[in-house]
Amino acid sequence: MSKLAAIIIAVIGLLVVFFLGMSSIVYGETAKLQERLHNEVKNDLDFDNFVAYQVKYFKSLERTENNGFVSETYWIVTEYEGELTHQLITFTVPNGAILRASSNEDPNDLTQFIFKNSSNEILLDTKVHESYKYLALSFNYNQDQLGFIYQFIVLEESDLISIEVKDYEGDTFVSLVLDIDLDAFDESDFELGWTTEDLEREMNIKPILTEGLMFYIGIYLGVVALLFGGYYTYKAIQRSKIK
């Protein structure tokens, strides 16, 4: 192998280590941030950062504490390819001793989220929706699961939206009617979701990336030096034997 070929292979390997290392570090730190945000909801009963992490704009419309639960409903706005999508999302988290399913298949669980419009048309009913109707939703209240529940609908037009949430025994602990006027949407009335800079700050990613990449690159360069050093030492010995 020529020295030029060895250098090219080493550089390509270095680039691969750099990008794989960077992806691994970012993935790991993102997972840590998501765990922290989940814990803020479960332990601090605070949904704001969990919401801000995922949206462009958000506004809390109603927060209630009832029957051992804290619930909060937000108007959230996401953006994809320059297009804004408006949604209503309701969170519920236990704030005391509650009945909850011990498995995802508990047939006695009556936990239910219902969203309706002013015409009494059902926009979401978790007891009939294909994704949820066979699941015991309250199983998610367990600490070894998500620890809380959220459901959302996409807002297509201005309307009065009613939201009802029931617990394991079928008792209603959230009952809201919200007047949503999409035409009156003004971003200045909303909180800003996290930007890329906010995410970097929350994860403190720059020093972690620097330290992590130096570690990976240091190991790689050490291995390369050992391999190539051994290879050329072996070649030198072989040439000396021939002479």
Rank of each mutant, 00 (worst) to 15 (best):
G13Q: 10
G13C: 11
V16D: 04
V16Q: 07
F18M: 13
L20I: 09
G21M: 09
S24Y: 12
I25M: 07
G28K: 10
T30F: 07
T30L: 08
K32C: 06
K32P: 04
Q34F: 05
Q34G: 13
R36E: 14
R36M: 12
L37N: 08
L37R: 06
L37I: 11
H38I: 09
V41I: 14
K42L: 07
K42W: 02
N43F: 07
D44C: 00
D44G: 00
F47C: 09
D48P: 05
N49E: 14
N49G: 06
V51Q: 09
V51A: 09
A52T: 10
Y53D: 13
Q54R: 15
F58D: 08
S60G: 11
E62K: 07
R63T: 03
R63S: 05
T64Y: 01
T64E: 06
E65A: 07
E65G: 01
N66L: 01
N67M: 02
V70R: 04
S71K: 05
S71H: 06
T73K: 03
Y74S: 01
Y74L: 04
W75A: 06
V77E: 09
T78G: 11
E79C: 01
Y80K: 15
Y80R: 12
Y80V: 05
G82V: 02
E83S: 12
E83D: 11
L84P: 02
H86Q: 11
I89D: 01
I89T: 13
T90C: 09
F91S: 05
F91N: 04
T92E: 01
V93Y: 02
